[in-house]
Amino acid sequence: MKSIDKILKACKKNKAWAQAELFELYSDKMFGTCLYYSDNKSDAEDLLQDGFLHIFSNIEKFKGGNVEAWMRKVFINLALMEYRKKKLETLTIEEEDVYSDNSIFEGDIQQNADELMKLISELPTRYRIVFNLYAIEGYKHREIAEMLEITEGTSKSNLSRARDILQKKLHKLDDI
């Protein structure tokens, strides 16, 4: 296995072998990201392809640092672009019961990542994206509002709703 620096350097020269290796290295991780930013697996696959093509054609913009974080950002930006295309108002939000009991978070919860990501993927699109951006990626509400072209208040509200739904789902999961 070649070092990531060598691979990136070769990618900048448009070397096929390096592109293949970069894909090999990060495709699983990035596919995970694609899954919890997409509505379904098919969209995630499309996003994965678009993301890597975008990365290969813009690799020279990567000036160093954490390549995984940079790639992740590329995928998120592409997901958001896709999201904006779909028009927020056309997206439906499934209202679900919200559990007020949050005791589930007080104990040690050892849910595996797959199950937790599945819960995220079940969130309504806007909630899911706001939650991902805020809780996972660490964006501020102001930034999220700009990215999604919504108000800060809406962002906060969506985040709150997402948390409530996730709490409820976690509770259910725990019950099982």
């Binding site: 699983d28 995970g32 919890y36 994965l48 849910q111 990542a113 937790l116 990501m117 995220i120």
Partner: peptide
Amino acid sequence: AAQQYSTPAP
């Protein structure tokens, strides 16, 4: 969970 999450790409 997200940081650990990885799933085989198709």
